[in-house]
């Protein structure tokens, strides 16, 4: 592997200082891509895939570094405080960007970052257990109105993007459901299959596999329709103003200069068109969703705002009323 020795690093630094500001920025030391989740997970895989595909485009090594902890906020905090020189990037766009900062105090906000590129978008699919009678959004809403607070949804953890999606949805539909958090999406799906909760959110690939086996109903996606499961309606189709997705992309600290961001965006965009990237993405259900840095920022901001709105209007407090 191509890790520069400290001495080389120092040389590189010296060169940056000595050379007069060149017209175009070119990286001169390894670029660190920080992942806020453990190795092997979905975020990590996306990061490593784009890093290995983009390596050809870069004159320096791209190093993926995992800083797991606190739903990705640990890594986000670190990158928000990092030197804005383009050598430290964060894989963002999921819970740590659009969800957690709306629920609790974090030492960063979306304003601390600027988008570099969006790499993929993953639809979120609301599912219920087959045979539960809740085979459509209408059925869910009706049942929830009949017995407020009795239906329960499982999330991947408090303040995560699954939790937020349900808060926005219940707020929109004017219903009241109980939140039961699990340690991740898979335990929540297991609980759904075991009949311990009524509803949860999975990825399109998971939904497709379980639907084929006849174990679940996919009632809706939380944004537009997914190509992978075209028959499942989206909440927008059904008249609910919900548009949330689990996105993955790269962001840099807010004060990173334009030319640096431009350089990074171009290189990563080229990488996303490479054969290495498209073959693996295609095979492994990673839905490429290129967006420029600025558009990625906007997308994150609009999703984050919708969560903030729902929370301000009392979303997620339903169980409090039920308890009294």
């Amino acid at each position: 592997m191509n890790f520069a020795k400290p001495a080389l690093l120092a040389l590189g630094l010296a060169a940056t200082i000595a050379a007069p500001a060149a017209a175009q920025w070119v990286p001169e030391k390894p670029i660190r891509i920080i992942v806020g989740f453990a190795p092997g997970g979905g975020t990590d895989q996306t990061a490593r895939l784009i890093a290995s595909a983009a390596q050809e485009q870069f004159p320096v090594p791209l190093v993926v570094e995992n800083r797991p902890g606190a739903s990705g906020t640990l890594a986000a905090e670190m990158v928000a405080a990092a030197e804005p020189d383009g050598y430290t990037l964060l894989v963002a766009g999921g819970s740590e960007s659009t969800s957690v900062p709306n629920h609790m105090e974090t030492q960063y906000s979306l304003d601390d970052f600027r988008g570099v590129v969006r790499v993929n978008r993953e639809h979120m699919v609301m599912v219920t257990k087959k045979g539960s009678g809740l085979d459509s959004v209408d059925a869910v809403v009706e049942a929830a109105k009949e017995k407020p607070g009795e239906l329960a949804y499982g999330s991947s953890g408090p303040a995560g993007i699954l939790h937020s999606a349900f808060i926005v949805f219940t707020q929109e539909a004017g219903i009241d459901m109980t939140h039961v958090p699990y340690q991740g999406g898979s335990p929540a799906l297991a609980a759904l299959l075991g009949g311990h909760i009524d509803m949860t959110i999975v990825t399109p690939a998971q939904a497709k596999a379980q639907m084929e086996a006849g174990t679940i109903n996919a009632v809706a996606t939380t944004s537009d329709r997914s190509e992978e499961i075209p028959d499942v309606p989206s909440l927008t189709d059904l008249g609910y103003d919900v548009n949330l997705e689990n996105m993955k992309g790269l962001v840099a600290p807010a004060d990173t200069p334009d030319e640096v961001v431009k350089y990074l965006q171009d290189k990563f965009a080229q990488a996303m068109e490479s054969e290495a990237f498209t073959t693996v993405a295609d095979r492994s259900n990673i839905a490429p969703g290129y967006l420029s840095g600025a558009d990625f920022e906007d997308a994150m901001r609009s999703m984050s705002d919708s969560v903030a709105n729902a929370l301000e209007n009392g979303g997620g407090d339903d169980s409090a009323e039920a308890a009294q």
């Binding site: 092997g40 895989q45 895939l49 690939a205 596999a209 086996a213 693996v280 492994s284 259900n285």
Partner: peptide, 17 residues
Amino acid sequence: AILLGALVLQGVTPGPL
């Protein structure tokens, strides 16, 4: 969980089927 992720990268969809 990591193994399942690796299977997905291989284009195999894990699931009951």
